[in-house]
């Protein structure tokens, strides 16, 4: 199930190499000098590494992630995911090798938790029986089997996010990119969501990059913390590779 990994172990899972990004000005804003969202960022995340991206709103955390999953193209520099430059191949092919987790859960309201998770496998073309087995295994692995028959409106926000994570990662991607996955949750629910992500990290060691505002969660797990400010890396604590 695991996405194919590049051969050499030293190839980072995700690498931002001298990346700058300037958003194009809207029509109304033309004439003003554009402020770069990212300015010459160099950041490498190793295979199996867990990295927190922290910083104030507008610092560039989300832009870094969006560049990694191909939603944006860098104005300067290069982004590589699993050794491959982003943007060379069609983006949807890249995304099949990634697990994307967002603040919004986007569970399908007419499907149960199990069906929602299976839907992730169905979208990738798995036969219905196999998709269901994978979903059951995933829910069981994450300790969510009790929620299997519940519909989204019967789940709490934290439970919905955990089901959303199970669906996003059902194909066991080698890289997980999470953008404020606990942004809608209270601290207790956020902790549970992080436990789910941690369990996944322990199980098949994907590289995990989490952009978050939640200071309380940073110390938890002893992971690498990269602070982004004004579009630059302000600090990088606990990196395995630089």
């Amino acid at each position: 199930m695991r996405a194919e990994l590049p051969g050499p172990s030293e190839a980072p899972a995700v690498a931002w190499l001298g990346v700058s990004h300037v958003f194009p000005m809207s029509r109304r804003g033309r004439g003003r000098a554009a402020r770069p969202a990212l300015d010459g960022v160099d950041l490498r995340v190793a295979m199996g590494e867990w990295v927190f991206l922290v910083g104030p709103s507008g610092a560039g955390k989300t832009t870094l992630l969006r560049l990694a999953y191909g939603a944006l193209r860098p104005t300067r520099g290069e982004v590589r995911v699993l050794g491959e430059p982003v943007g060379v191949r069609p983006i949807h092919l890249l995304r099949r090798r990634l697990g994307l987790v967002f603040q919004s859960f986007e569970l399908l309201p007419a499907k149960t938790a199990l069906e929602n998770v299976a839907y992730g496998a169905e979208v990738l073309g798995r036969p219905p029986g196999e998709a269901r087995r994978l979903a059951e295994a995933m829910l069981s692995t994450l300790g969510l089997e009790d929620l299997a028959d519940r519909f989204p409106n019967e789940l709490s926000a934290g439970e919905q996010q955990r089901v959303g994570i199970a669906r996003a990662l059902i194909h066991r991607p080698a890289v997980v990119l999470a953008d404020e996955p606990t942004g809608n949750l209270d601290l207790a629910s956020a902790r549970v969501v992080f436990e789910v992500l941690s369990r996944i990290h322990r199980l098949w060691s994907p590289a995990v990059v989490v952009a978050t505002h939640s200071r309380e969660l940073l110390a938890w797990g002893g992971h690498r913390v990269v602070r982004v400010e004004g579009g630059r890396i302000a600090s990088d604590e606990g990196a395995r590779i630089r």
Partner: peptide, 8 residues
């Protein structure tokens, strides 16, 4: 969901 999961 489809766009995130890699449907073209």
């Amino acid at each position: 969901v489809k766009a995130w999961m890699g449907v073209s």
